[in-house]
Design a protein around this nucleic acid. Structure first.
Lengths: 221, 221
DNA sequence: GACTGTGAATACCTTCACAGCA
DNA sequence: TGCTGTGAAGGTATTCACAGTC
């Protein structure tokens, strides 16, 4: 009945990192880089909150950073350099990633342009579509392949992440197929969630759903 | 100390509609339209779940629909026609909406193309950017205006919804300005949340943050 | 005194279990 | 019996309050 944490005095608890905190950690990394560029060496959780426009409470920041390890000094704050380094490591910012775009309509094109312009660590390495009008086109030197041929052509591209931007009806099938081909992470733009067996990470983005939330709330008034 | 609901026997509780349920209601509407097209007249919560590929539990569906009113019949299921009608009403699908795009980089362009292609009820009525290279360009007949002139030019467009797709540093300022100009709903693509006074509805979409979740989880392994 | 680290309290959402009707 | 409507339970994320440390 003795809490094992109490056995070692000064033990560090380090709550597990949970998904919701990751975009926040990413934001911390961004503003800490700015602080670094300004020559700052340390920062407090309050200072960080201020740099983020107080959109995140300092308590939340401390809880998030606490999960990374004992990086702060009580009474002082956090040293920025090790914090940035640890964040980059935890967020996987130190690797490059190869992306397969499945579905090259407006959304697929948009995402490809956005993510490659935004971050150099993301490379679009394969593009698929089912429309004969699109298959065979080139985008940044990459030939758009037929979705039907994915089993033959995806493996060569050696992708880590698939972005699914196909109509809702086709999404589950596409997801299962890329998962079967060894992709372990999927960003899904089709409305509502996919379910897959095995260790596949799925994140859903539902743009039309978000618009529906806005129009719903507006029409209440 | 008496629960007022108990005063009227057979009272209908109707829990309040919460944001998270709206994208689900939107998905129900989509598949119910399919069911209508197939000539079906009624459906059960289980049937709906099946049409959604069991990505949503039937219990969840019942809780969501229950919030709309007493639309089901115990032992029978739901009549599809009134359900579709009620969903369209609640989701604001019966109105047209005028959208202002603020920030016309990759993301702004992408969203404009996507949303107008996807749903006719959304009209892009104004576009703003701060880059002189972009200001003055036309998109679907709409001239891109300078963000600096928003106070003069936005009112004439009579927009209900603003889509903010500017860099993180500029987002809070843009949001405050569109809110001051009477916009009551904002879809924000800048990382991390905005905070605004007054009755402004804000939804955040953080694409880079979602990608960070994927690269984080991948680099754990 | 200042600031972090963290258990407890709170709020929120989903799932469970079952009462209530047709 | 079959299915909805719903209170209760469970799980997860945020906020509060404060002990611990410099």
């Amino acid at each position: 009945m003795i809490d094992p944490k109490l056995d070692a005095s000064r033990a560090f608890s380090g709550e597990p990192l949970v998904d919701v905190s990751i975009p926040r950690l990413f934001a911390y990394h961004r503003v800490l880089r700015q602080a670094q560029a300004l020559g700052k060496r340390t920062i407090t959780s309050h200072g960080l909150a201020a740099m983020l426009g107080h959109t995140i409470a300092s308590t939340q920041i401390r809880k998030d950073l606490c999960a990374l390890g004992p990086l702060g000094r009580r009474g002082q704050g956090y040293a920025i350099d090790p914090l940035v380094e640890q964040l980059a490591c935890v967020l996987g910012l130190e690797h490059d990633w190869r992306i397969a775009i499945v579905g090259f309509g407006y959304l697929g094109r948009a995402f490809a342009a956005f993510i490659t312009a935004r971050e150099r660590r993301f490379n679009v390495a394969a593009i698929f579509d089912r429309s004969p009008a699109v298959v065979g086109q080139r985008w940044q030197g990459i030939v758009v392949r037929d979705v039907a041929d994915m089993e033959r052509t995806l493996a060569a591209a050696d992708c880590n992440i698939a972005v699914i931007a196909v109509p809702a009806e086709a999404a589950q099938d596409c997801a299962q197929r890329v998962a079967a081909l060894g992709i372990r992470a999927i960003l899904n733009f089709a409305p509502m969630s996919l379910h897959l067996r095995g260790p596949v990470i799925v994140r859903n983005i539902d743009l039309a759903g978000e618009m529906a939330i806005l129009t719903h709330r507006l029409s209440l008034e």
